[in-house]
């Protein structure tokens, strides 16, 4: 390598490369997890990318203090905080009527029948999740939607496994009851 190259290389410290690689890998591995979590935490689809970006910016600033094995938990907590912050501005508690109106608009497209059904299911789920307390909602997101074990969820949420189990039980019961109530009312 020529002496001239060495004049360029000091711009690229090994630590910088390592840090950039870690950031890049984290975005690659966890972006979808963060994005999906934000959606279920009530962030509208149109805003989820922006809030996910904010989440990763927070992660970037705290990177040196986050253990590699705890990245996912940190990102989830950061996403939860970002979603709470964003909710004050974005989150509208859509009624089913409003959601239906949105879906009607989507239905004008001839090839989206299946997608509309999926969207309807998601809107329904989100409306039920929104009725849960924050404590119950995050447990459902981690255990039922992201399919983490109760131990993993307990670690991320810093609560005992037994607490996760009981919250999950209550959350599922609430969701099932809500689902039954809504489907009955739609008949």
């Amino acid at each position: 390598m020529s002496a001239n190259v060495s004049r360029v290389l000091p711009l690229v410290g090994v630590a910088d490369v390592t840090r950039e690689e870690r950031l890049r890998r984290s975005v690659d591995e966890h972006y979808l997890f963060v994005w999906r979590s934000l959606r279920r935490l009530g962030v509208p689809e149109s805003e989820a990318d922006d809030v996910a970006q904010e989440t990763f910016l927070v992660f970037s600033r705290k990177l040196d203090g986050v253990d590699a094995s705890a990245e996912r938990g940190f990102l989830f907590r950061a996403a939860t905080y970002a979603a709470m912050h964003a909710q004050r501005k974005y989150r509208r508690q859509r009624t089913l009527e409003e959601s239906a109106a949105i879906l009607d608009g989507d239905g004008e497209h001839p090839s989206v029948e299946e997608d509309a059904e999926r969207q309807e299911t998601l809107v329904l789920l989100d409306s039920l999740l929104a009725k849960l307390s924050d404590d119950l909602r995050v447990v459902v997101i981690l255990c039922d939607l992201e399919e983490m074990t109760m131990n993993e969820a307990a670690e991320i949420l810093s609560v005992p496994v037994g607490t996760v189990a009981s919250r999950l039980r209550r959350a599922r019961a609430g969701l099932s009851a809500g689902m039954t109530r809504i489907t009955r009312s739609m008949r």
Partner: peptide
């Protein structure tokens, strides 16, 4: 119905990779 809703939620994806690309750029 709840299980179906969970399946739909797990399958949800951003409509494009733009958000991820912008996140990388912001970083």
């Amino acid at each position: 119905l709840l299980r179906r809703a969970f399946d739909a939620a797990r399958a949800e994806r951003p409509r494009s990779g733009k958000g991820k690309a912008q996140t990388l750029a912001a970083l």
